[in-house]
Design a protein around this nucleic acid. Sequence first.
DNA 1: GAGTCTAGAGAACGATCGTTCTCAGCGCAA
DNA 2: TTGCGCTGAGAACGATCGTTCTCTAGACTC
Lengths: 204, 204
Amino acid sequence: MDNEEYRQRIIAAADRLYYTRGFSSVGMDQLRDAAGVSLRRLYRLFPSKNDVVMAVLRGRRRMWAERLDEHVNAVGTPREKLLAVYGFLSEWFCEEGFRGCGFVNAFAELGAVNSDVADIAREHKVSFQRYLGELVERIGVDSSLAEQLALLAEGAQTTAAITGQAQAADRAREAAEVLIDAALDRVGSDSWGKNSQSRATSDV
Amino acid sequence: MDNEEYRQRIIAAADRLYYTRGFSSVGMDQLRDAAGVSLRRLYRLFPSKNDVVMAVLRGRRRMWAERLDEHVNAVGTPREKLLAVYGFLSEWFCEEGFRGCGFVNAFAELGAVNSDVADIAREHKVSFQRYLGELVERIGVDSSLAEQLALLAEGAQTTAAITGQAQAADRAREAAEVLIDAALDRVGSDSWGKNSQSRATSDV
DNA sequence: GAGTCTAGAGAACGATCGTTCTCAGCGCAA
DNA sequence: TTGCGCTGAGAACGATCGTTCTCTAGACTC
């Protein structure tokens, strides 16, 4: 087992513990036990706890992007791709042990006193906004739609985490459909004059 | 100065410190200094730190409800009242030191290991959903609209906190207008037959 | 004025945590 | 075999934190 394998084992154990119990509730001793490594090796691979925390968050950022991509790439039209975001959320919320967005949690717990954490949380959120922005661009509507859709996704995560309502993803999806179709309608009106016909069944 | 005044001083200082730096970053000694009371008095009024935390959260719940009410009661129609929610958020996000929803932060930091905190965070969120539900009832549309509007508000809080985008409240408001009017349109279609006319300027 | 009660200041205690250090054991080259 | 380097186990260290205790001074009662 080389160093990289040890790193991955430590990160996997830390991710599970930190996500489940919070960052400050989990000590290095517990992480050592869960990862099955010695304290000595743990500190050789991650010189401080903050390094573990940041490695966990970077791993989570990559995993999140990959899973989102999978769902979005599984469907064809831009409209379906936008809605697939909420399908991803729905699947995620139903997983055992779901406890909200790891970046929101990290920001809430550490962001005020740890700028590395605050930075990566902000980057993650902004990158999600950009991701939606690119999808929205393809259907040719104003980018403010992307911001609105992002708010729905963020709200669903918070709501599902705190209240346990996994159906928040479905409510967000329904709202997203309305917003997308309204935006498409507006584009229609702008280019072709007044046109309030619904585009809900359009394949744009 | 009687005990109640001391309690309020302690809660006010704790609220400020906890909100700014997080709960576990603030020790009882710092709270004693900030509140200007002796450790002895502090512990007589609040037998444990958890009692301070819960008192702070209960105070925040009341304050939040009052401020929300003020904004909602300042306007007339149910539609305006629903939109006033986002006016409240906009004002809040622009305040110096805004760092997101205190209940989301508390849930993220302590919810996993402190069920009192998890409970009050859940109650706060559910109570906000009910509040919107009552406003939505008055315009006679399906209660799922209230859930959608709540998601926008939640998402705006998270987004404004982490990315610093105070305009998230305005995006949420714009989206809310679209959702409300679409819901009103659907009610119109249901009762009066097909009717896709926009109700954006209606005073319902 | 003596005795009693209360309060503040802050030392002290015990637990926890991040981090470092010690020590014994093992592989291995000469 | 001897010496060397590396490792794991876990003790140890120093800091912090929640909580309690001590000590002293003042207010109040009789």
